[in-house]
């Protein structure tokens, strides 16, 4: 008789664990996906347009690395480069440490950190490379990659339009 009541108790515990897992999963999904205030990353013009309001927050911005903009000091491990949205909105990024291997000019990046209140500089604590969906074998004649594909996935519109943003069209 004791054994069956023990079994019942451990079964309810498992049920509670199961339900809580499901509930937290649903809540997490609702919070990250449905909330119109949650943006995974801003484009440079969106971030600059709202820089004054965003400056105290930890945000992510995505952009394309401008050729020749990279400065790297191997002794202090300080990296600096400029990102653009290809529509003349540029942000100077500062980061401590070496970048990921795929970092290079013309590459997409997603930076996480704080933007200056004037929107001109960004102190990044995380530097991620956002590459395109292409897979091509190397050929002698140079890159086979299509720059437009990367541009599209970096600068596409947010699904929930933010009325205060500069409003870049995809």
């Amino acid at each position: 008789m004791n054994l069956s009541s023990k079994k019942k108790r451990s079964k309810s515990t498992k049920w509670l664990v199961g339900i809580s897992l499901i509930a937290s999963a649903v809540i997490a999904m609702a919070m990250t996906q449905i909330s119109s205030n949650t943006v995974y990353f801003y484009t440079p013009d969106e971030a600059q347009a709202q820089a004054a309001a965003l400056t105290s927050q930890n945000i992510k911005v995505a952009g394309m690395v401008i050729a020749g903009s990279r400065e790297w000091d191997a002794t202090t491990l300080k990296l600096a480069f400029t990102i653009t949205d290809l529509k003349n909105h540029e942000i100077r990024v500062k980061y401590n440490g070496p970048p990921p291997d795929m970092f290079k000019e013309g590459q997409g990046v997603v930076i996480e950190g704080k933007i200056s209140s004037d929107g001109q500089t960004f102190a990044a604590k995380t530097l991620m490379v956002k590459h395109s969906e292409e897979y091509k074998k190397p050929t002698a004649g140079g890159s086979n990659m299509n720059k437009e594909l990367l541009e599209k996935s970096l600068f596409k519109d947010q699904p929930v339009t933010n009325p205060s943003s500069g409003g870049s069209t995809p």
């Binding site: 999963a25 999904m29 990921p100 291997d101 795929m102 970092f103």
Partner: peptide, 27 residues
């Protein structure tokens, strides 16, 4: 490649949710 082991973007988050729910089903 990206430089990070994880990020909470929509693709990874919804995939993580899938694992959680599969596990939840078994429990």
């Amino acid at each position: 490649t990206w430089g990070v082991w994880w990020t909470w973007d929509a693709r990874l988050t919804t995939s993580f949710l899938l694992a959680l729910m599969y596990g939840g089903w078994i429990l």
